[in-house]
């Protein structure tokens, strides 16, 4: 029981971090059709910038400055890069972001070096918030939840209550129609791309010290964010939210399950004694493959529902 509760809590924290990364990507992906491979690289830049700024000004100014810098970087990438590639099609745009990954990776290595940064949780937030069944729940995780919930609320308000939000929503589902109605769609694109990068930067700021700030962090987060976006479905922030939480919770829960396929077969009187590839697969406990479940789930949902969980149109 206690394991369930604690896993649920931690899954929630991780899921919210995923959501912060994935929401930006969903917005970009839905509107522009671009699977932005460099999204996780922006997340990494956010963490590094936050580290550098927090060395000088402290953590809380970094919380604001680093995401804004990432947003500006995103705007620059859109205006000077993506926009020029746009007419060459989606694969060209995708390859453009792909090239960016290489450049950002080496750029970060050249600027900050190859080793992990000593980017730590600020002292003011470094205490246990409460205790469940003898396990501490650190205040910083509570803070992360707070930030991501606040971001969720702010994004929701922005999308539902402001004019630009309504245009973005329109462009999300009917890009051509929005453009025909005379809205400046390229401008909306820039705003969305910058906004998405800003969210990725914010995720980097609070994720950089929750995890470690190192040149490999983009590679570690990249694929899983794609999975969340596709699983949740195109054009749906709600789907993205559900997918993030589901993926977060599943990954934390899978670790607790020590059963393997063979355990399901045992009641049928089947047991294995041989030692070959098949038995090797059958006896792998779920805990060992926990981190792979999201990929398997994504394949499954795409086979039966290509638009994803709550997608409004086909991908």
């Amino acid at each position: 029981m206690e394991i369930v509760l604690i896993s649920l809590l931690n899954g929630l924290v991780y899921g919210m971090l995923l959501f912060m990364l994935a929401s930006g990507l969903t917005l970009i992906f839905s509107m522009m059709g671009v699977l932005n491979f460099a999204h996780a690289s922006i997340y990494m830049i956010g963490a590094y910038l936050a580290f550098t700024v927090s060395q000088v000004l402290g953590f809380f100014p970094a919380l604001i400055i680093a995401p804004i810098l990432c947003g500006l970087l995103g705007a620059a990438i859109e205006i000077y890069g993506l926009r020029r590639v746009h007419h060459n099609g989606h694969i060209a745009e995708l390859l453009f972001t792909f090239g960016l990954v290489f450049i950002i990776q080496r750029g970060v290595q050249m600027t900050w070096g190859m080793l992990p940064m000593a980017y730590r949780v600020p002292a003011i937030l470094d205490f246990p918030l409460f205790t469940v069944y003898g396990a501490n729940f650190p205040a910083y995780r509570g803070f992360m939840l707070l930030i991501s919930a606040g971001m969720l609320l702010a994004t929701w308000l922005l999308l539902k209550k402001t004019r630009i939000g309504l245009i973005i929503q329109a462009a999300l589902t009917h890009p051509q129609m929005a453009s025909s109605l005379g809205h400046n769609v390229p401008m909306v694109f820039t705003i969305v791309f910058a906004g998405g990068c800003l969210l990725a930067g914010l995720a980097g700021v609070i994720g950089g010290n929750y995890q470690t700030t190192e040149p490999g962090m983009a590679e570690a987060m990249g694929p899983i964010v794609f999975v969340v976006v596709v699983f949740g479905g195109l054009g749906s922030l709600a789907g993205c939210f559900i997918a993030s939480i589901v993926m977060g919770v599943i990954q934390t829960f899978a670790v607790v399950i020590d059963y393997s396929f063979i355990d399901f077969l045992k009641p049928l009187g089947i047991s294995v004694t041989a030692d070959n590839l098949l038995t090797e697969i059958l006896t792998v406990p779920v805990a060992r493959i926990g981190a792979l479940l999201p990929f398997a789930m994504m394949i499954l949902i795409l086979l039966f529902r290509p638009r994803g969980l709550l997608g409004t149109r086909d991908t």
Partner: peptide
């Protein structure tokens, strides 16, 4: 730094010679 050159080559190909 060859990866940087690969990255820049791709990006310039994508922009100028799709």
């Amino acid at each position: 730094s060859w990866l940087v050159y690969v990255g820049v080559l791709f990006i310039s190909m994508v922009i100028f010679a799709p």
